[in-house]
């Protein structure tokens, strides 16, 4: 079986704990375009760390810098204690990466892809064949070992690519949008792999623009937008700090009444996405809801639906960036 060092072992062998990832005031500019603006964060060994933000926010640029595929314009980035600018080979040797784009070779079989991936890290011959078979078992592709990847479903290919990212038993694994475009079933399977990587003590940095994914997998999340870190904390704290949850009330009213109600400062109603929906958020939701319902019942109107929404990361993002991820993506 593949041996993964636990966090504790790693700390013991090096005396003190080396942070898995250090981003120290990193900026990256392409010409006049700023991809990353003074980004700093640290990821401790054994953590599952999420970069959450819309497309183009700087998530992939961050990963490319940490893989030493491009250099910071300013600042310093370290992975496993190695400087990405001057120790590229050491960095690459110690990390695994599952890119967002297809990284498996469609014309090779699953097994051949893994043999090639092993070779990239100097694992060859019998050792490579053995590791390939172990990893195929981990991602449940043993039965498809000799099939060519062009005949694979999207989910099977993704599982293979994750296996390919583990061939060098990396201490740090970068997963770039690991479940993008996959069906729910496969998404859960991949979440399970991430959980098992955590149990083995690997450090995982994953990027996603799926909020539930960040929420359920990550120990800590950095919310990133337009190349800047907007907030960094545990999912729970982020929600406590920036989200209050909301109440949705669906009630059919004439347009002028609706406009009047929305204009009422004390009630603090907000329009929902649909015509007949009102939103109430903030710490004083309940008293305001009570007053609103009082007004409605005085007018003889009964709401068709009242629903409570728990605080969500979507709300956190909205509070920090002034728009939701879905809105940014649609722009």
């Amino acid at each position: 079986m593949i041996s993964y060092q636990t966090t504790a072992e790693r700390e013991n062998s090096s005396g003190t704990a080396v942070p898995a990832i250090v981003m120290d005031k990193v900026s990256k500019r392409y010409g006049s375009k700023v991809a990353l603006d003074n980004v700093s964060f640290r990821v401790q060994a054994g953590e599952v760390f999420g970069l959450l933000g819309p497309n183009g926010a700087g998530k992939t640029t961050t990963i490319r810098i940490l893989l030493s595929l491009c250099f910071p314009t300013q600042g310093r980035a370290l992975v496993n204690g190695y400087d990405v600018t001057t120790q590229g080979v050491e960095v690459r040797r110690s990390v695994g990466w599952v890119p967002q784009d297809r990284s498996a070779d469609l014309r090779l079989t699953a097994f051949q892809n893994l043999i090639f991936a092993c070779g990239l890290y100097g694992v060859m011959g019998r050792a490579a064949a053995q590791r390939a078979d172990e990893l195929l078992a981990v991602v449940n592709l043993t039965a498809d070992r000799g099939r060519r990847v062009k005949d694979f479903s999207g989910g099977m290919r993704r599982r293979l690519e994750i296996a390919m990212g583990l061939v060098n038993e990396p201490k740090v694994i970068f997963l770039d949008e690991p479940t993008l475009g996959l069906d729910i079933q496969t998404r859960y399977t991949i979440w399970n792999y991430v959980q098992s990587l955590r149990k083995r003590g690997s450090t995982v940095l994953l990027t996603t623009h799926y909020l539930e994914e960040a929420d359920s997998l990550c120990d800590r999340i950095a919310i990133i937008d337009e190349g800047r870190i907007k907030a960094l904390n545990t999912p729970l704290q982020l929600k406590r700090n920036f989200a209050t949850g909301r109440i949705e009330i669906e009630v059919s009213l004439p347009p002028e009444t609706r406009a009047e109600l929305l204009a009422e400062q004390d009630l603090g109603l907000k329009p929902g996405q649909k015509e007949d929906v009102f939103l109430i958020n903030g710490d004083d939701k309940i008293p305001r809801l009570t007053r609103f319902l009082g007004l409605l019942s005085a007018a003889g109107v009964v709401p068709t639906r009242i629903e409570t929404r728990e605080p969500s990361l979507d709300e956190v993002f909205l509070a920090l960036a002034g728009r939701t991820i879905a809105q940014v993506e649609a722009e």
Partner: peptide, 13 residues
């Protein structure tokens, strides 16, 4: 044009 080239470059080869 796929991710394969980057994937190769991200290795120590």
């Amino acid at each position: 044009e796929t991710g394969i080239f980057d994937r190769i470059l991200a290795s120590p080869i």
